[in-house]
């Protein structure tokens, strides 16, 4: 029954086994491809229904229209062209609990979960994920501006 040092065999076996711990910050840790980490936003797909905002348990996500002044215009053929509403998404990573309910709520699939889990930062302002709608022409203008600088 009771045998002292009964764990000895296991100790020897483990001594020669590869360690199951990792030197984390020096060696990158991997997560499963299903892992829910930072939420990514695709402004091209968003229609601004605000369902994600309504269902967010942590009040972390904001969807703001960036062109509220734009009016519907009448085209050359007399048809009314509706405003192309453009949105900006702000996710406060200090509030987000990574439940990905917003991903489930979004029926346009504008939001998705990514596997970026290393989000720590010493700067508070970098902890807000901001993504704005940008059309192709504006992208070009931005890059030109950068080049000039």
């Amino acid at each position: 029954m009771a045998k002292p040092l009964s764990v000895f065999g296991e100790l020897v076996r483990n001594f020669f086994k590869k360690a199951s711990t990792q030197g984390y910050p020096f060696k990158k840790a991997s997560v499963d491809s299903n892992f829910r980490a930072q939420i990514k936003y695709d402004p091209a797909l968003c229609v601004g229904c605000q369902l994600c905002v309504k269902n967010c348990p942590a009040d972390a996500i904001k969807i703001i229209q960036i062109n509220p002044e734009d009016k519907p215009q009448v085209g050359a053929d007399g048809k009314v062209i509706p405003v192309h509403r453009k949105f900006e998404c702000k996710i406060d990573l200090t509030r987000c609990i990574f439940c990905a309910q917003c991903v489930d709520s979004c029926f346009k699939k504008a939001l998705s979960s990514s596997q970026d889990f290393e989000l720590a930062s010493t700067d508070r302002s970098s902890l807000v994920y901001i993504k704005k709608y940008q059309d192709a022409s504006q992208d070009k203008a931005d890059s030109e501006e950068k080049e000039q600088k």
């Binding site: 100790l11 020897v12 483990n14 001594f15 360690a19 199951s20 711990t21 030197g23």
Partner: peptide, 11 residues
């Protein structure tokens, strides 16, 4: 180190 290795840790 010995203690850690026997516990299957890096130490």
């Amino acid at each position: 180190k010995l203690y850690a290795r026997m516990q299957n840790r890096q130490g």
